[in-house]
Write a protein that binds this DNA or RNA. Structure first.
Length: 524
RNA sequence: GCUCCCGUAGUCUAGUCCGGUCAAGGAUUCGGGGCCUUCGACCCCGUAACGCGGGUUCGAAUCCCGCCGGGAGCACCA
């Protein structure tokens, strides 16, 4: 029975509703009326459970970031809903000078997917499939749907804006075939000739007028080198591969809407019925200001600490900060398939993560910029104290830490409190001296009482056994401080809450005399 | 400028297709209180929204028209 309950509790609300509805009865009604916390995901038209095939198509030029996360988790959501398959298709056509394919990112992206728990059912590389695009191009040409244009790119653009035809547009089909063969036979250099789709120059959408299907590039591809010179554009390659790979539903960002129309246009021309398209809007996390290209530069230059640097906001970096993929998934799915562009504060993601870790995360004391405080008249026999690991969760146990008379307090906590009585949290009350010391100095405070007074309560670390700690912050900055002695037992991967600082993830354990405890700041 | 898309509280979202059960639900933020985690955890309570103007209707967040605002595309990038 309990196993059944656990299973039901673990189900996403949408699936719960589906299942209850299939059972029928009053439960179904209640579930349907229950308020939804998540976003809305429409049914996929024509989807047959077990037969749905989706695809992820990243361009290997960087680590996946939270925006890509939306692609990942939406596809994953539908895969689960319909018991479908997900193909990972690296969109590694030749790109451009600015946007290059790099080998290292194939592995990195597969790692990202694994971390996200999205296991593709198969992996493909566009670059393996280039030759196959040529006969398809020929089919389009045979239908009279394309022509070879040798206009310079700028002229092509101008004509497109004006809706003007160039001389090449009136090519006969045979001429096009001949020119196309010449393109394939290396008669043209890069930029000298392209195969263009013949749409309608009067099309109201200037973006849709005679777009380019294939072009010539001599860029050295990391997987296939210079084996091919004629490369497909994204739209054409997908017009082919969405059919060849048997994709049943294309889910993509709304920046790609015009590509839908291109693909459909080509399919109509060839008498093919392709899959339907669904889109989502742009998702931005307010704090994630670093653009992908900048992150790329900073990682390359070494200014950032690799793709897991917190400043990249890559999925890898969030994992490093102890933000679970499950939290990221819920966060992302809460936006549904909305087409409006959204900017959401990172706090919303943090809240999602907190729900998962707060109840199970032990509390530890840490003070930044520590000031040594000697407490005069500190009670004899109070050499240690038993503290709860979690204020509301006794089941998380306790730990014993050694106390005074020597302590470290955070300088920030001391500021403005000279000469006042404060409480060392969970311990004793002391009176601070009238003057605070310069950096590195020691102050003497005086023990006053042990009663629980409602006065400012300060975080403290017992001087005996205090461990050095280094926190890597979200801006890549390091904060040095001291933590309680129990931190000697913290291991890489542990998630802790430094009280009044925030949740951190341990990256490197403390080693006597060699290394401080290194942690990465997660979130408040 | 042209094309397409989107407008529910500070932010995100449910509801809009099939008008009444929505004097609009949830999350987060914010405010107040609690707490030996004060600011920034956690718990409790609370504030807060249908972009504007017309129309249809007994009745509109939901349907129609106009306006305004925001975004994306207009690359031989993806």
């Amino acid at each position: 029975m309990s196993a059944v309950v656990a299973e039901v509790v673990a189900l996403p609300a949408s699936e719960l509703i589906d299942r209850l509805s299939s059972i029928g009865g009053p439960e179904a009604t209640r579930a349907r009326e229950a308020p939804s916390t998540g976003g809305d995901f429409p049914d996929l038209v024509g989807a047959v459970p077990g037969k749905v095939v989706l695809r992820l198509a990243p361009f290997p030029s960087g680590a996946l970031h939270i925006g890509h996360g939306r692609m990942l988790f939406i596809n994953q959501h539908y895969r689960e809903k319909y018991d479908g398959k997900i193909l990972l298709v690296f969109d590694d056509t030749i790109g451009s000078e600015e946007k290059r394919v790099e080998t290292e990112f194939f592995g990195l992206i597969e790692k990202d997917l694994e971390a996200a728990g999205v296991r593709p059912d198969a992996v493909f590389y566009k670059s393996d499939r280039i030759a196959n695009f040529y006969p398809w191009a020929r089919r389009v040409i045979d239908k009279g749907g394309a022509y070879v244009c040798t206009c310079p790119a700028e002229l092509l653009r101008e004509n497109r804006a004006r809706g003007a035809a160039c001389a090449h547009r009136s090519q006969t089909r045979d001429e096009t075939i001949e020119e196309w063969e010449r393109m394939l036979a290396n008669a043209y250099g890069p930029g000298e000739a392209v195969l263009r789709l013949r749409t309608d120059l009067a099309d109201p959408d200037p973006a849709f007028r005679d777009r380019v299907l294939l072009r010539i590039s001599d860029i050295d591809h990391p997987r296939v080198g210079t084996k091919y010179r004629v490369w497909p554009m994204l739209e054409f390659s997908w017009a082919v591969d969405d059919i060849e790979l048997g994709i049943t539903h294309v889910l993509r960002g709304k920046d790609l809407v015009i590509e839908d129309r291109m693909q459909r246009y080509i399919w109509d021309l060839l008498g093919i019925t392709g899959p339907p398209f669904l889109h989502w809007g742009i998702l931005r996390v307010r704090e994630a200001k670093v653009a992908k290209s900048k992150a790329y530069r900073e990682v390359k230059s070494g200014l950032f600490d690799g793709w897991a640097d917190p400043r990249t906001w890559s999925l890898l970096s969030l994992d490093r900060r102890g933000i679970s993929m499950d939290a990221i998934r819920s966060f992302i799915l809460s936006f549904g398939m909305s087409l409006s562009d959204i900017e959401v504060p990172a706090e919303t993601l943090y809240a999602e993560n907190r729900k998962r870790i707060d109840g199970t995360t032990v509390r530890r004391a840490f003070v930044a910029d520590p000031v040594r405080v000697e407490v005069d008249e500190f009670p004899d026999g109070l050499s240690s104290v038993v503290l709860s690991n979690h204020p509301d969760r006794p089941e998380l146990g306790t730990r014993t830490v050694s106390t005074g008379p020597g302590f470290f307090l955070a300088r920030k906590d001391l500021e403005g409190r000279a000469g006042t009585e404060v409480r060392l949290k969970d311990l004793v009350n002391v009176e601070l001296p009238a003057l605070l010391p310069p950096a590195g100095g020691t102050i003497r405070a005086r023990f006053t009482s042990r009663e629980n007074k409602r006065i400012p309560r300060l975080q403290w670390v017992g001087a005996s056994g205090a461990r050095p700690v280094d926190i890597l912050g979200m801006e890549g900055e390091h904060t040095a401080g001291l933590g309680e002695a129990t931190l000697a037992e913290a291991h890489p991967g542990d998630i802790l809450q430094f009280e009044r600082v925030g949740f951190v993830r341990v990256e490197k354990n403390w080693t006597p005399g060699a290394s401080p405890l290194r942690v990465v700041f997660g979130h408040p």
